[in-house]
């Protein structure tokens, strides 16, 4: 029974990984866009490091974390689009006629996103180090950055899959994409929370889980080992992943019943 599950997960995971990586239109922008924005913003906003209380004298180090979260947002889009394609093409209907277990389907679908997330995280980390970002927490810290980045990718990937399963269309997934960006923009993306001057913006950024995901990665790059920032980062990313996974599983159950 257990070996059946592993076999099912393995087959679907392979399909999901191959399908994701075979689509340059999905992989390339999810890496190039965050790097381009990192390059432009770190050069354009470097003078903000002169604001008293700014935690580092390099905006590049500060902004590096944004690339990881932005990459994860693209993962949500990819995951959602892939699931929606399966629904629209009838693949999910055909799968529902087989003895495939739902958990295998869900885990298999998300494997492609994790593979994309890993490529993104290693690329962003490599570019960061190449262009002078010192990872204060060292090699172990770099590994934790990759782990946190994968958790964030999983969280947003599950949200994308949930939207696709609930609506059944790729158009709806694309429609939700700007909302993910809103979550990133309304966070401590551009400045540390304590340096945000506008009261309502600071409040929104404080309640926004994306702020803590950014701050978790940022702490390892700039400060070193900061237990609180890491705990909050993993709690927000992991918590969001669990809630979104439960929602996506429920949506999958409903869709399989309808099928």
């Amino acid at each position: 029974m257990k070996s059946d599950l592993f076999l099912q997960v393995g087959m679907l995971a392979r399909r999901s990984v191959v399908r994701t990586l075979r689509q340059p239109a999905m992989v390339v922008p999810s890496i190039v866009f965050p790097l381009m924005l990192l390059s432009i913003n770190s050069s354009g906003l470097d003078s903000t490091t002169q604001i008293p209380g700014f935690p580092t004298n390099s905006y590049f180090e500060f902004a590096l974390a944004i690339a990881f979260v932005q990459g994860a947002l693209f993962s949500a889009n990819s995951a959602g689009t892939n699931v929606a394609n399966d629904i629209e093409s009838g693949f999910l209907n055909r799968l529902s006629l087989t003895p495939l277990r739902r958990i295998a389907l869900m885990m298999g679908q998300l494997s492609g996103i994790l593979a994309l997330g890993l490529i993104q995280a290693l690329t962003f980390l490599g570019v960061g180090v190449l262009f002078g970002a010192g990872i204060e927490a060292g090699v172990a810290g770099a590994a934790v950055i990759v782990l946190l980045s994968l958790t964030i990718s999983l969280a947003f990937g599950c949200i994308g899959a949930f939207v696709a399963l609930r609506t059944g269309t790729g158009e709806a997934v694309q429609g939700v994409f700007p909302l993910f960006f809103a979550a990133l923009f309304l966070s401590s993306m551009a400045l540390p929370r304590d340096l945000i001057e506008i009261g309502w913006f600071q409040t929104v950024a404080t309640y926004n889980p994306v702020s803590y995901m950014l701050e978790g990665i940022r702490s390892l790059v700039i400060t070193g080992w900061d237990g609180e920032a890491l705990a909050l980062g993993f709690a927000c990313a992991g918590g969001l992943a669990l809630v979104a996974l439960a929602a996506a599983s429920s949506a999958l159950r409903t869709r399989m019943v309808r099928t």
Binding site: Q50, P178, F185, I196, F201
Partner: peptide, 19 residues
């Protein structure tokens, strides 16, 4: 998109005018 840009940067980066 323009609205997000405006809100995010006019709000989030308002401290820039003290540079």
């Amino acid at each position: 998109f323009p609205l997000f840009f405006f809100i995010a940067f006019a709000g989030g980066l308002s401290r820039v005018d003290s540079i």
